[in-house]
Design a protein around this nucleic acid. Sequence first.
RNA 1: GCGCCUGUAGCUCAACGGAUAGAGCAAUUCACUUCUAAUGAAUAGGUUGUGGGUUCGAUUCCCGCCAGGCGCGCCA
Length: 595
Amino acid sequence: MDIKAQIKDKLRKALLDLGIEGLEIELEQPKQLSFGDYTTNAAMKAFATPNLKSKILNLKSPKELAKRIVEIFNSKFVIHDSIVGKVEAVGGFINFHLSANYLGTWLEEVLRDNEKLVNKPKSSSNKIVVEYSSPNIAKPFTIGHLRSTIIGDAVANLLEVTGRKVYRDNHIGDWGSQFGKLTYAIKTWGNEEEIEKAENPVKELVNLYIKFHEEAEKNPKLEDYGREWFKKLEDGDLEARRLWQKCIDWSWMEFNNLYSELNVKFTENNGRGYGESFFEDKMKQVIEELREKDLLKEDQEAFLIYFKNDKLPPLMILKTDGTTLYATRDLATDKFRLEKYGKDIKIINEVGAEQSLYFQQLFELEKMLGWFNAGQRVHVRHGLYRFKDQKMSTRKGNVIWLEDLLNEAEKRALSLSKQDSISISQNARRIGIGALKWNDLKRNSIQDIIFDWEDILNMQGDSGPYMQYTYARTHSVLAKVKSSSNAKATADKEKLKVKSSIQDLKFDELEKEEIHLLRYLYRYSDVVTQAADSLSPNIICNYLFNLAQRFNLFYQKHKVIGSDNEDQRLALVSLTGITIKHGLGILNIEVPEKV
RNA sequence: GCGCCUGUAGCUCAACGGAUAGAGCAAUUCACUUCUAAUGAAUAGGUUGUGGGUUCGAUUCCCGCCAGGCGCGCCA
């Protein structure tokens, strides 16, 4: 039984002594460490619950009730309890302070076995598909796709470290009517050989795509030509297929480079993910099922899904010319996933918030089809990157290319240090990418981000480089211990082997910053669980940044090597490093040992 | 017009219905022959858009209004 469960259990017994039964006890980590390691509002809750109130009528306030509970708790348990060092009633809250001895024991245990850093839930059989990144072939891989890539990757990592089986999928946009437009554009204004020779073929394709939309504004007939070419593609026309395949090859060259720079990987379909075209021959079957279940209604030669009581606008499945849409392919995709991974599979799509309505429609339809139960389909949304005065738009050509962004990030990282440093120039690319990732992950992802170079490549304070730097400091201390012969403890790269026995380590003698650091480290496991449950990597960022601040405060104030409490302090440094590394691992941010 | 999202310090953002609403950036001041100053300490900065309601307790939940963003059948 873990600590939380133990405390809850004892609390329940204490409440029973007062005749209070059936109250759901919540044990939380209070915001401030001065309020203890765990806290409960049980007294206030009991007081506010009418049928419980009658039993405690002799008590005037939640405050008194909390006091009574603590008295019982203390007389029954705490005296012989080495885990909880102190229980106190503050206001109506009951706060539990873990003993320094217990925290020290815990720290040693985690240092011995890093696996114990995060408690994995017992039932870890959940299987989850996380679909993210999903760039479009022949379109720029922009800062917008970067969001989905970075956030989706972090969400997948979060689920994995908390014991789920995760399938990482990339729903590449390699099918759809944009290929009709593009084919027309290549044939009319483009030159295949020149595209082939160009430094960045995708940029050439995008220019053609932009030209198509410019021309189409003057001459709406172009839209029809585009549709014709897409129809040809769907019908298997050889020329249409050939050009389509070319576009895919050109695009993949670029995608592969970016994924390897970002260290992002996918597990499905040999690491490529199942693109939309994979489902091209699987849509017929889905359309059949929709017809059989009498869900498909015709309107002006197109086929749509209508929802009960018009609670959602209709969703188009087949266009007037008989070709498919995004929705058709998504349905085929999810059908395929049901068959491949089993009907209890959970599917998360990390896609921009602008598609919220579409996903509502899709999920509702999939429910009508009887494919999924509530909670099995999730849309993790992220806000848009916007310019101050306009939207980013591929069609209009005002986008930030990821390539340029990474170069700028590297440039800024280079000029970061006040001192000259060789290692910075070696690490600039990784530091720049770390800054970029952190800035995408540190905020609640639903918000739009106004594009600003200063902001997204921030490298001071609450930033990726700050975290990397802090890690490097921990590493540096341990490296010095390792090379020093006087040191009492020896440090491995990862694990600190504390020679002393548990009894010798005196954590209750540590000073305030140190014991606070230790208690904050203890929270990590709960934080990871919370972040995973709410699919919010930013919770990890908040925690890590706080941890780093506590560590830097401690680091600035206390000498570690050669101090009286060297063993304890080294253990703290070591665990801080391990925790930061683990956390940044979830966020997929590299931790250079020297920066 | 309808739907969804957002509104917190000058700027960018935190805060599971809880305790004195916290950080970073910017500003002013202080601390570098260091176990890495890419850091730390201190000061200043708030009617949480607005008006009601629910609650022992509301930045958080509900309703109205204001402002911004996104979306609403042949794009994805």
